[in-house]
Design a protein around this nucleic acid. Sequence first.
DNA 1: GATCCGTGGTA
DNA 2: TTACCAAGGAT
Length: 293
Amino acid sequence: MNATQLIAWFDAEARELPWRAPGTTPWGVLVSEVMLQQTPVHRVVDVWTEWLARWPRPSSLAAETPGTAVRAWGKLGYPRRALRLHAAATAIAVQHGDVVPDEVDALLALPGIGAYTARAVAAFGYGRRVPVVDTNVRRVLARAMHGLADSGPPSTSRDLSDVTRVLPQAQAARFSAALMELGAVVCTARRPRCGGCPVASDCAWLRAGRPTGNVAARPGQRYAGTDRQVRGLLLDVLRAAADPVPRARLDTVWPDAQQRERCLGSLLLDGLVQQTHDGRFALPGEAPAAITP
DNA sequence: GATCCGTGGTA
DNA sequence: TTACCAAGGAT
């Protein structure tokens, strides 16, 4: 893995994403990384821009209700991320003087910040030399280092060890960003564009003739009819509503009453939904005082 | 380690 | 059209 070559390619070819602009704060980086968890870049751009304009510091988000964060999250998906980001903002404001921590361990202690995001914030927000491992990095290294078509199951310790082996002393954070970019736009899962790859001459997989991986074994994530879909439908009603909605309104989104109740119950347990005193439902913190009949 | 947690673009 | 899957985290 030729770090100089890869970084030069990144300098010339990197996409201009708003959170990569000069002057982006560590808070901006943190927000972008949480939004990008399992979510394509093109869907994040507008929401991130809106969030950073509206809440330029952790304390400005912390001043809002959790429900406001969930509403502003829109349809990015996995709305628990919005709740946890709000909680992380609160923790940063209260416990860290409104300054995003620059150490991995402190970042890991924040809600919604795991092994990837903690290192991404330390690296991209603060320029720290820490290994950053996401799905792109794992795939690129599986091919370039190990000659395999795809990465095996994730193993935090082994993956970190692999990345540490190739991480340069200088410009480590930029190297990691370049590695991720390479996986996102060149060394993709479906149809890798090896013709345009800046490190093709170093690639074990290319050298081996691009062998195919194990075709079998993939559970496949279905969506239609799952609790995730039903939870999404329920929450969509609450996001769109200016006021708490009666249960009857929620009953219209899905025919299976038992599944509906289970999903509503899980949303309440997750703190994504709150019930008012008069029995209606709203996003958390947005339910006004009970209106007595 | 396996499972659950949204959403929508793409081949 | 169906199936895959995109900068993960928590349990």
